[in-house]
């Protein structure tokens, strides 16, 4: 009976997120436009400027578009994770997050369900992006499209957990703009999404270290290798570790006795 309750609640939360996603077409389009602009404009412009040497998982010289495709999938998931965190701040202000918190299930389960729901949406977006890239001849081996699924699930959960963690201590929507500037941009640019590590090392040792240990880099590498049917164990462990860390901190943040909610208080 209990398990049935958990299952129904999880399907309800995921179903709601998918329905919302289907009903908000502009959200779907805008989620795709951003990486597509990077792919078709930015990457095309930089194609000649950046030489990419052969490095795993690639077995031959590749175009810059091919290199940044996994990075842009990471970007989709990063934005999605932050956006669901934005929607949680918004939801909480509007009360529907409170609605969720009032239901008789453990809070860790509700937060995890919310996370799974957000990840499901980001996986759909990632596949839509891969489809468009495929039409433009940016094609990975067929098996890669299968292997990428577990990688996308883990990276989506990790980035979603980061968003969840941030949402637990952002009270106002206005603060979110700051998070975009202080989290999204540094995380994205200090990573292997746009340039390989050895390229970063050529210009700055510090940036190289930051980029290597950036969980987003690890998520991008996990996706990159999976897309070519390979497992990058280090990236897998690192991404999974970051997920556990962020999730534990987020659950603490939402704990009614200890977390940020008490300190933030509520107006009357």
């Amino acid at each position: 009976m209990n398990i049935l309750h958990y299952w129904r609640a999880l399907s309800g939360i995921v179903g709601r997120e998918l329905l919302r996603f289907l009903h908000q077409r502009e959200r779907f389009v805008s989620a795709l436009v951003r990486p597509l602009v990077w792919l078709f404009v930015f990457a095309a412009g930089f194609r000649a400027a950046l030489g990419i040497a052969i490095s795993p998982p690639y077995e031959t010289y590749i175009l810059y578009e091919v290199y940044i495709t996994p990075g842009l999938i990471g970007m989709i998931q990063l934005f999605n994770g932050m956006q669901s965190s934005l929607s949680m701040v918004y939801d909480r202000e509007m009360g529907s997050m409170r609605m969720l918190m009032v239901c008789p299930l453990p809070r860790w389960f509700l937060l995890s369900s919310k996370l799974i729901a957000g990840t499901a949406v980001s996986v759909l977006q990632a596949y839509a992006f891969l489809g468009i890239a495929w039409l433009d001849d940016i094609q990975a081996p067929p098996v890669g499209y299968l292997w990428i699924l577990p990688a996308l699930l883990l990276s989506g959960m990790m980035l979603g957990a980061l968003g969840l963690l941030l949402s637990s201590f952002i009270r106002q929507l206005e603060n979110f703009a700051g998070v975009m500037n202080f989290v999204i941009f540094p995380v994205f640019f200090m990573s292997t999404a746009l340039y390989p590590l050895w390229k970063i090392k050529e210009s700055s040792e510090l940036l190289y270290i930051l980029a290597e240990y950036n969980p987003f880099s690890q998520a991008v590498e996990l996706i990159r290798f999976a897309l070519y049917g390979q497992l990058n164990l280090q990236a897998l462990l690192f991404t999974a570790g970051a997920f556990i860390l962020f999730m534990a901190a987020a659950i603490f943040g939402y704990n009614p006795s200890k977390g940020m909610m008490v300190r933030k208080g509520g107006g009357d």
Partner: peptide
Amino acid sequence: GVVFQQTTLDADLSVTQNLRYHAALHGIG
């Protein structure tokens, strides 16, 4: 059962979809 001060319905979803979501959270089939 709670009715909060601000509306907590999903404006893009139908009445039934909103209510089914709530029922699912409470484990109702």
